[in-house]
Computed example of a mutant assay.
Amino acid sequence: MSNTPWLIRIPDVFGAFAPEILAGLGAALQKRLGGDYYLARLADPAALQDSEWSIFTGWNLPVDHAWPCCPQKMDGFVEKAAQGMLKKFGDRSPQALFTGPLQPGAPHPYYKHLATNLRGRVLQLFPSLPVAEVEAQDPEAETLFCLIGKEGLYSGMQSPRAANGFYPGGTKFIRQSEAISRAGAKIAEALHYLKLHRPGLPAAAHWLELGASPGGMTAELLNRGFRVTAIDKAALDSRLDRAEGLTFVRADVDAYQPKGTFDALLSDMNGDPRSSLRQVVRLSASLNPGGLIVFTLKAAGADTPQEMLDLMKAAEAFARASGLSLIAKTHLTYNRQEFTFFFEAS
């Protein structure tokens, strides 16, 4: 086992399978932390990048510095914690420092505010760090991440790509109070995640969206300045009536024959994932060279992690045999029992 403990985030939707997932990673559990976090030792830390079981982990971090305590009961916690982090990491030249709560969805924002205050104090003590904005990070350069909760402080350095997210804990909170559907947050997070692996699409890029109704993803893409051709046999939400940049084709995806070309293709269709992927492959012929594909693989029919892995392997093999190149795959914070694949059309 490695000497350094690791903070591994297993999304709540897979919580019942956590012992099996940790075993698949070669991890020995030490302690459960926060909502989704597991402090564990790994036989081989490379498993977090290389093992097929890593798909069930949302985020990970080597814990180079831990302070088990109850911050709410400790006088001067922020100052003491900041001094401790300076002593541990001050000479390691991270590109940035970002902090967050161990339980981001907690109803009381105490630890979110505490994380913000700690970051402010550490930045006063540290030498100037070159990156201030989360998504301005170099995906391959090391960042100092710190998570705080009622169990204490846990921090370490790792590149965003290796950690599987730009944000501490991997989560970007996306407000949904006025959204047409939860799917809007899903594509927003997917586009943030994609920056770990390739530059974002240019302004006014043209998306082909399959199974668009009721239009949550459509609205998010339009709000980002993209053009969208949306296909569905059901109507879109009335808030999208006459939306600028939108072309809506009311038709079954199976019968749709595209006119023209597109820069990206999006599929979040329900139903049999094999059928959905066949339509994605068929319509990928309408993408410009190097076109992006964002595909949600629905795994609701798979009851165990191994069945999910088998489904993903089959989908990946079919896509590869059909000329699609895999860029990345992950379980997004806003996914349920489903996985997001990013492909490039050759």
Rank of each mutant, 00 (worst) to 15 (best):
T57L: 10
P62C: 08
V63D: 07
V63I: 09
D64A: 06
D64S: 12
D64Q: 09
H65T: 01
W67D: 10
C70A: 12
P71E: 02
P71R: 01
K73L: 00
K73S: 07
K73R: 15
K73E: 15
D75K: 14
F77R: 05
F77L: 05
A81I: 01
A81F: 03
A82C: 09
A82H: 07
Q83D: 12
Q83V: 11
M85L: 15
L86P: 02
K87L: 14
F89Q: 08
D91F: 11
R92K: 15
S93Q: 15
S93Y: 11
P94Q: 00
Q95L: 13
A96I: 06
T99D: 05
T99W: 02
G100H: 02
G100C: 00
G100P: 06
P101I: 03
P101C: 08
L102I: 08
L102S: 05
Q103A: 14
P104K: 02
G105R: 15
G105P: 09
A106T: 01
P107L: 10
H108N: 14
Y110F: 15
Y110G: 05
Y110H: 09
H113A: 14
H113T: 12
T116E: 13
N117D: 14
R119S: 04
G120S: 12
R121L: 13
V122H: 01
Q124C: 12
L125F: 01
F126K: 04
F126M: 14
P127C: 02
S128L: 14
S128H: 03
